[in-house]
Design a protein around this nucleic acid. Structure first.
Lengths: 149, 149
DNA sequence: CAATAATCATTCGTATACAAATGAAAAGGG
DNA sequence: CCCTTTTCATTTGTATACGAATGATTATTG
């Protein structure tokens, strides 16, 4: 055991336990959340794909890079997600008439329907993720977590 | 906007905003944490690789699957991480004399040195990740987060 | 002890995730 | 208005992350 400190009375104790580190806990919390997501959404949509659909529903058509920033994905990631959603007919892309660099991403009719029909499940996922907590703890947790983004 | 509810007086309000969902916040918190990790560790070690080294240091040599469970990685993921660490000389694998199915993973001398020299940085990463919070908030956050793993 | 179940490691396929490099187009400054 | 900077989208390469399938080995149980 290499990670130790000496306390005042000379005792040597471990002071770095992986299981107590915030990053390790966050990773496991995400893993549990994703498992809950998949239990409600099946293999139809990944959490990332859902984020894109929900955000497009929320803000409407937008450029691919803007969409990536709004969903916390870098340019390479958002491109892959949009491509896969486009392959399945949920979104479409078109050139921006006012800016030749941009491609505007928007929901298709099918994508809008799919999104509308999934909000209930999405709400359930959030609720189930927080289920181990009391109502007060949920509020506290979300408040603190939002300071860490 | 498809995600709306009608309140008692007939007003329609949005009730699903991506930015408020626990999964989306968790993903962003991890992104920030990983960025902090990379600022302290450079390109030498990923958070996942560090988790394996720290856990091996903590519990000693163990089978690959056990190591995966101890670090919250499935069998395919832990194999890739162990392979890359082995390529770089930080860990080694050997057959288990008592169980022909198992391969025992252990730190090499170089791996143990590397691990020892990184605990300070790892502690700093955890501290920096929680830096936006007060001391009381950090304690509260870790306590609640540990209920969600 | 023989049949079944469980565990272990590997492999394949798909999907994030991001750094870095590239080329095209727009914005801004002198 | 040219030059520099910025923005945008794409591509490449590496590293998680996990479901599912496979084959080998061990454990269990009737």
């Amino acid at each position: 055991m290499n990670s130790t400190v000496e306390t005042g009375d000379g005792t040597i104790v471990a002071d770095y336990l992986l299981d107590e580190q915030v990053g390790f806990l966050l990773r496991q919390a995400i893993q549990r959340h994703v498992a809950i997501f998949e239990s409600k959404f099946g293999a139809d949509l990944t959490p990332t794909q859902w984020a894109v659909l929900a955000k497009l529903d929320e803000i409407g058509a937008t450029s691919q890079n803007r969409l990536g920033r709004a969903t916390a994905m870098d340019v390479a990631t958002i491109k892959g997600v949009v491509d896969r959603l486009a392959d399945r007919g949920f979104v479409m892309t078109a050139p921006d008439p006012g800016d030749a660099r941009r491609r505007v991403v928007s929901l298709t009719g099918q994508g809008a329907e799919e999104t509308s029909s999934r909000f209930e499940a999405a709400r359930a996922v959030s609720e189930m993720t927080l289920a181990p907590l009391s109502v007060a703890e949920r509020r506290t947790f979300l408040k603190i977590l939002s300071k860490l983004v």
